[in-house]
Amino acid sequence: MDTYRRYFEENPELFAALVAIMAVLGGLAGSVIGAKIQANGGRDQAAAAREAAKITAEAQRVAALWTVRQVQVAELIRLANSQLQRCERFWFFPELDLDDDSTALSDQIARESEELSLRWAEVRLILTDNAVEAAGKLVLATADVEARVQRYAWLRHARIALASATVANENVAIEVARIFETDAGGRERQMEALRDAVPSLTEEHASHLVAHQGASDQYIEGEKNSARHEFYQALNALVHEARAMLRSEDDRAAA
């Protein structure tokens, strides 16, 4: 060590050159290390940016899916409720003072049923499994309401028309009772006899009266009430599953 010290003391120009070289090498090393740190920092920033973009994209996807689910299930429920209201209206059509005819209302029910089926096909693609199952039960319950209306509401209309035509004519009422008591000649003959006895009856009235003559008014009322009860059970079940799917309770708690 003393040898080096004496050497540099005897040759100061070499010592100065060495110090300069060391200063340059130190600067270069510092630049290299700084560049490496910046490069690593840049990669970290890029990775963080990519992760943030992924999170944002996923949040947007979830928000869009939530909106589509909410809109679709709400529309399905609206259509089902609308169909129920039309069916309820159809049950009591003869007692209502309406300008439109019952056939037009029946056609509206058929169109609404088709629209509900199309909506059901759409929601199956986006709802959760539990919500899909509940939605399917509501669609089936709505179809059952419609089927019972188409089967028994027409019969109810026909019986009201028959009662209106015979209430003031005892002889006609007796003849109608006799027609129903005998099935000689089959249904076609009974229908012809009914229309002969009560000319105001339409062919459709006579057809329903003969085809369902064994169904009591109490039975028909029970069918209507049963269908309505099953509908509301299915509706409430779908609302429950939809709220779970949309995390409605979480939103309420957060508020």
Rank of each mutant, 00 (worst) to 15 (best):
D217N: 14
N225Q: 11
A206S: 10
L209V: 03
A206Y: 06
S226C: 01
A234L: 00
N236I: 07
L238Q: 07
A234Q: 00
G222L: 01
S226I: 09
Y232R: 02
A206H: 06
E221H: 10
N225M: 09
G214H: 15
N225V: 10
H205E: 08
A206M: 01
E221P: 00
Q218R: 14
H212M: 05
E203Q: 13
G222F: 01
T202S: 15
E204I: 11
V239G: 04
E221G: 07
A242I: 07
L238I: 02
H240G: 03
Y219H: 13
L201T: 04
K224R: 15
A237R: 11
I220T: 13
A211R: 12
A242D: 00
E230G: 05
H212Y: 15
A234Y: 04
Y219K: 10
H208D: 08
A215S: 15
Y232T: 07
L235V: 06
D217G: 13
F231N: 03
E241Y: 07
S216F: 02
A211I: 08
I220C: 04
A234D: 01
L238H: 09
Q213D: 09
K224I: 11
A242N: 02
N236M: 04
S226R: 15
Y232A: 01
D217R: 12
E203D: 12
G214L: 15
A242Q: 06
I220G: 01
H208R: 09
H212A: 05
G214K: 12
A234F: 06
P199V: 02
V239F: 06
L238S: 00
E221K: 13
E241I: 04
E223D: 04
L238K: 02
A227E: 07
G222K: 06
A227Q: 02
I220W: 07
L209K: 00
R228T: 09
V210W: 04
H208C: 03
Y219I: 07
E241G: 07
G222S: 08
S207F: 15
A242T: 06
E204V: 12
S200M: 08
Y219D: 09
H208W: 13
